[in-house]
Amino acid sequence: MGRYLARRLLESVITFILVTIVVFLGIRALPGDPARALAGEESDPATLAQIRTKFGLDQPIWLQYIKYVNNALHGDLGRSSRTGLDVSTSIRHALPVTLQLAVFAIAIAALIGVLAGVVAAVRRRTAAEWAANGVALLGLSVPSFWFGLMGILLFAVAYPLLPASGFVSVFDDPVQSFRHLLMPAIVLGSGLAAIIMRQTRSAMIEAMGTDYVRTARAKGLGGGQVVFGHALRNSLIVVTTIAGLQLGGLISGAVITEQIFVLPGFGKLTIDAVFTRDYPMIQGVTLVTATAYIGINLLVDLLYSVIDPRVRVGGAAL
């Protein structure tokens, strides 16, 4: 186990180094001089030179990289070249926004998707199934930016029931947080709801035809008990796996949702940093993202090895 753990840790470190190099070089390969982006319209060669010196952009790339990694290892992700704000602080403010949005979106997607999937499976070849399928198709097809704008026009402008933008943390004011996040979460979760609905439907159809469901019915259990107590319970294993796999996609999708609803989350921070060629911020957010992905993958691999000893044995044999 110790050898397996060491090997996975080493692989993670190598992956991490490669990611930082790719990101570091990748953003520098983008057309657009960060000094020029920072100088705005009032640029002159002397000012540009000063800016490059101030942010170390005039140094060799390898030296910039080493300094960056060294600072990052000491917990210093630097300051935004555009706003002068601390990158770590900005990320610390942005991450909870995206996480709360993602969790809320998954909850809504699961609620809608599972219910619609159950209805579609239990009421086959009825109007209810057609309606559920139609909703799923819409959820997959409608672009989130359009869905979001329509939602704002309807529920914030025409009927001012919900705020059009902004964020309140659930820990500060749960009610206001719910109001602010409801529309963005529905928009973000709509695609996932459709996927969950289809998975639930197929899993439920399969489950409803199994022997244990027939046995449950033969024992005289009611329809609700059979569906929710037996068939759905087993179907949820597949659904939960799918929902988990979609989490990464959900966080990517949050980029657009955060722009529409002006949520100060991780996606908005990243996009705005790219447009302004804010190298320290881009490096900071990608570093945090890469660390999270590598960390989660490592954790999953280690869990696999705990659950299934063949994994670590196979690893040792290699």
């Binding site: 704008l149 059009a164 933008s165 722009q259 002006v262």
Partner: peptide, 18 residues
């Protein structure tokens, strides 16, 4: 001062009273 880069979103926010 709220930062809302997209003009459509700024307009929606003004109309909604946000």
């Amino acid at each position: 001062y709220k930062i809302i880069a997209d003009s459509t979103t700024r307009m929606n926010n003004l109309q909604s009273g946000d």
